[in-house]
């Protein structure tokens, strides 16, 4: 605690300049809800903490043209209360509802959730179905990467140390069906054992004409599943079809993780949770 410094630049430029100068010995901090835990556990040691939580460039949730822009420093409470998200990215809004506790939602940021690279990050499946890209700033300028590219594995961030995520660009969607669900060990304040997000629409004949799905907390990094998206698109949804899609999803997931002890539960629960979440389509 005594050997770590704290800086809070006023502008993004200053922050990037500090990062550039102290690359490798600086850790970005926003809400601090992961950083503080890691500092206490001794798993994080750093010379400097660079506070980005108040940077104007990282704040705000807005529609810009055809894009939905969510600032990296938007807190989970802001996401929870956002009417824009409720309309254009309802699964993301829902992912904030059972996220940690109110105290944590009040400070935890979406940028921190993504950059922490926990397989269990609640916002990730919802971001994935909106094909979100992260906007990264460095002294060299801006670039965009798909959010799936940020984690190279559990808790392993693939971003260069001199970059800051400033915001996320989502494809907004106004759909009839969307949800985020998670399974935790208790009703509140529980990290996901499993999480899922989807959105869908049906055409006039009741066929699924649009379907996006992503699974969290089961694979090293949360992922879309294109196979079941394709399987269900164009179909009249009934319980048997959804059940079968859930089975395929479970099979695909186990193919990635292997059949470890914890997979016994997950294999069935993936199918089960998928059924439960998507059932309103029936």
């Amino acid at each position: 605690m005594m050997n770590t410094g704290y800086v809070r630049p006023r502008t993004l430029e200053d922050a990037l300049a500090f990062l550039a100068e102290n690359s490798g010995k600086t850790r970005i901090v926003a809400g601090g809800t992961d950083v503080m835990v890691d500092l206490r556990a001794g798993t994080l040691k750093t010379d400097y903490l660079l506070d980005v939580s108040r940077l104007q460039a990282l704040r705000g949730i807005e529609i810009i043209g055809n894009d939905l822009s969510v600032g990296a420093a938007a807190t989970l409470s802001e996401i929870y209360n956002s009417a824009i998200l409720e309309a254009h990215a309802p699964a993301l809004q829902k992912s904030a509802v059972n996220f940690a506790s109110k105290q944590i939602r009040n400070v935890a940021t979406i940028g921190g959730n993504v950059a922490h690279c926990s397989p269990c990050g609640d916002t990730l499946p919802a971001l994935a179905i909106h094909e979100a890209r992260a906007v990264l700033s460095s002294p060299a300028g801006e670039r965009q990467v798909p959010i799936e590219a940020i984690a190279s594995g559990p808790y392993m961030c693939a971003l260069p140390q001199n970059e800051i995520i400033t915001r996320f660009i989502l494809k907004p969607a106004t759909v009839a069906f969307a949800d985020f669900q998670k399974i935790g060990r208790r009703k509140e304040l529980a990290v996901a054992r499993m999480s899922m997000a989807y959105m869908a629409d049906k055409d006039a004949e009741g066929r699924i004409c649009f379907f996006r799905f992503a699974l969290g907390a089961c694979t090293p990094t949360p992922q879309r599943n294109h196979r079941i998206e394709a399987m269900l698109t164009g179909q009249i949804p009934d319980a048997a079809r959804i059940w079968e899609a859930g089975r395929v999803l479970a099979e695909d997931t186990i193919a990635v993780t292997g059949r470890r002890a914890s997979a016994v539960y997950k294999e069935s629960a993936i199918q089960g949770l998928f059924m439960r979440m998507v059932y309103p389509l029936v």
């Binding site: 809800t33 503080m36 109110k102 944590i104």
Partner: peptide, 29 residues
Amino acid sequence: CGIGECGACTIEVDGKAVNSCLMLAAQLD
């Protein structure tokens, strides 16, 4: 608990409840 899991350290910062164990004191500025 020291890690945001119990709420015993809850304080109010700018009208919002936060876990003071998870907040940097520097962020109180």
